[in-house]
Simulated scan of single mutants.
Amino acid sequence: MNPQTGTQQSCKSVDQAGQGVTQVENGMGGYPPVNLPPSAEQSPTQNQQFIVDALRRHTGDFVRVSMSFNNTDREFKGTVQDVGMDHVTLEDERLNSRVILPLIFVNYIEIPK
């Protein structure tokens, strides 16, 4: 923690194996910094990339997206308009609306034939 600005500091260092390791100072006096492996710095995960690629192949197709957030389950239906690294945009023509859904809350996606 930088005492002048009150912000968290991080720095890159190299461990004994020669791997780059990001250290984040946790700001709790007496505790050592947290070491994150290089893979933790990479985004998105391989599983997320698979989902994003699958959704991009179905741009323009009708899908059902099941999500859980705030201790509730919701299902969204619509045509895939756009897919980002962390979200999907659906258009519901019946309601004449678009929704942006964060992929972090997705349980499953159904793509009917």
Rank of each mutant, 00 (worst) to 15 (best):
F105V: 11
N107S: 13
D53E: 14
F50Y: 14
N47H: 10
G20L: 07
D86E: 11
Q8C: 08
M85L: 13
M67W: 04
F62P: 01
E75M: 10
Y31R: 12
Q48S: 10
L95S: 05
L36R: 10
N47T: 13
S39W: 07
V24F: 06
N107Q: 15
Q19L: 09
I51G: 04
T59L: 02
D92A: 07
D15M: 02
A54Y: 12
D92C: 03
R64C: 09
V52D: 11
P44V: 14
G29V: 06
D15W: 11
V83M: 03
D86L: 02
N35H: 10
H58P: 07
M1L: 05
V14E: 07
M67K: 02
D73C: 04
Q81S: 12
V24E: 11
S10H: 09
E93L: 12
H87N: 10
L55V: 06
Q4N: 08
S39F: 06
Q42F: 08
L95K: 13
K12N: 11
E93P: 05
L36N: 03
S68H: 01
I104M: 07
N70P: 01
N71P: 01
P33Y: 05
A54N: 11
Q23I: 01
I51W: 11
F62C: 00
T7P: 01
L55W: 03
V99F: 00
D15F: 03
A54D: 06
G84D: 07
D15T: 12
P44K: 09
G20E: 15
N71D: 15
G84W: 07
C11Q: 03
N2V: 05
E91N: 14
Q16P: 00
Q42I: 14
V14P: 03
L103C: 00
V24D: 04
T5R: 10
V65Y: 02
E75V: 15
Q81N: 12
G20Y: 11
N71L: 06
V24P: 00
D92G: 06
Q9C: 04
G78Q: 00
N107I: 13
E110Q: 10
Q8S: 10
V65S: 01
E41T: 08
I111H: 10
I100F: 06
G60N: 05
F62I: 04
V83R: 04
D61H: 14
F62K: 14
R94Y: 05
T22M: 12
H87A: 00
I100M: 08
P38W: 04
D15R: 01
F105C: 03
E25A: 08
N70D: 13
G78K: 00
Q23W: 10
R64M: 07
L55S: 07
D92E: 09
K12I: 02
L36T: 03
Q9G: 08
K77N: 08
G29E: 15
G27V: 08
Q16H: 04
N70H: 12
I104S: 05
Q81E: 15
G6D: 07
G84Y: 02
T89A: 03
R98A: 06
S97F: 06
D73H: 09
Q19G: 01
I51C: 08
T7V: 06
Q46A: 15
R56M: 13
D73L: 02
E110I: 05
L95H: 10
G27L: 04
D53Y: 03
D15Q: 05
M85T: 14
